[in-house]
Amino acid sequence: MSGADPAGGAKEKETPSILTKAFDVLNAFNQNERVMTLSQLARASGLPKSTVHRLLARLVEFGAIEHHRSGYKLGLGLLQLGATTPAAKMRDQAIPYLVALQRWTRQTVTFAVLREFDVVYLEKLAPADSPSTLVSIGARLPSNCTAIGKALLSYEDLDDLAAFLPLRLHQMTPHSITNADDLVEHLRIVRKEGIAREHNEAQMGLEGVAAPVVVNGFAVGAIAINHGPNAPASGRVDAALRDTTAQLSAHLRSYVVAAPEGERLVPRTLSDPPPWG
């Protein structure tokens, strides 16, 4: 008998769909492997070479994949789709504020949104001589390990947040906050101060501060500054970050549909998308 066992037995393993396999191929590309051969894609996706070959033919037809010499690369069709997302629109609106902040601090400035328990980076502006970090556009990192993630989480319902978190959170360095209750108490401080801080929690040697971009009571995004040896004094950095996020929040309000008069927006959970982004 197929399906779920009423007594709680194991479910029959679902056969991956053609759509799942197509995304396995697309997800095989990364920052280090921008052009891949058929054999490389088969190994990275875990799919038979014949299956990958058929999928590539269709993906090329749809513009999601393009030929590149003897291999393949992601196509501009994906860029067109990505550019139509609300998050991309918000990034476009944020760019002038991010540029101004980066020029003043001469440090790395990032912009990200929350997706479930991860932060997804939409933009990164860095000096030419900045050290390599885990952060790149499109990268996902555990929110408990980053200042930008903690800034975003601080606007969740903190009384209920612990119930949505695993007891043991993801650990990227020995300094990461891994206990859910400890994280919630830390977030209460972040919410009160309006600034989140990061000290070697995602990557050793990486420090920074972040503040949320708040619209109608939701943290729709956050901006972070990673400190370097020539950064301005911390108090001035905090003030500039608060000022920038306040300006961007005010600018974005015209792009968010307000709740009807007399109603309050229902607080979202980590599984729900924000009203913007």
Results as ranks from 00 to 15, higher is better:
3 G>Y: 06
6 P>R: 14
13 K>W: 13
14 E>P: 00
15 T>Y: 06
17 S>A: 04
18 I>P: 11
19 L>V: 10
24 D>Q: 14
25 V>I: 10
27 N>A: 01
31 Q>E: 10
33 E>Y: 00
33 E>Q: 15
35 V>S: 04
41 L>V: 00
48 P>W: 02
51 T>I: 05
54 R>L: 08
57 A>Y: 15
60 V>H: 10
65 I>P: 01
67 H>L: 06
68 H>G: 08
72 Y>R: 11
73 K>V: 00
81 L>F: 11
82 G>M: 08
84 T>K: 15
86 P>T: 14
87 A>K: 10
94 A>S: 15
94 A>P: 03
97 Y>G: 09
98 L>D: 02
98 L>C: 03
103 R>L: 04
104 W>T: 03
106 R>G: 01
108 T>H: 08
111 F>W: 13
113 V>S: 07
115 R>Y: 05
115 R>N: 04
117 F>H: 12
117 F>S: 07
119 V>E: 12
121 Y>T: 07
123 E>R: 12
126 A>R: 13
132 S>C: 11
132 S>I: 13
134 L>P: 12
135 V>D: 03
136 S>A: 04
138 G>W: 11
139 A>T: 11
144 N>K: 08
147 A>W: 06
150 K>Q: 14
152 L>T: 07
154 S>W: 10
154 S>I: 05
157 D>F: 12
161 L>A: 13
161 L>C: 02
164 F>M: 03
176 S>T: 09
176 S>L: 06
180 A>K: 08
180 A>E: 04
182 D>H: 12
182 D>A: 09
186 H>D: 14
193 E>A: 11
195 I>K: 05
199 H>D: 05
199 H>Q: 12
202 A>H: 11
204 M>V: 15
211 A>P: 07
212 P>K: 07
225 I>Y: 14
225 I>M: 09
226 N>H: 13
227 H>C: 04
227 H>P: 02
229 P>A: 08
236 R>D: 13
238 D>P: 06
238 D>G: 10
243 D>A: 15
247 Q>N: 10
250 A>N: 06
251 H>P: 03
252 L>V: 02
256 V>Q: 08
256 V>G: 07
257 V>L: 12
258 A>K: 14
259 A>E: 11
262 G>I: 10
270 L>P: 02
273 P>G: 12
273 P>T: 04
273 P>I: 04
275 P>D: 02
277 G>E: 09
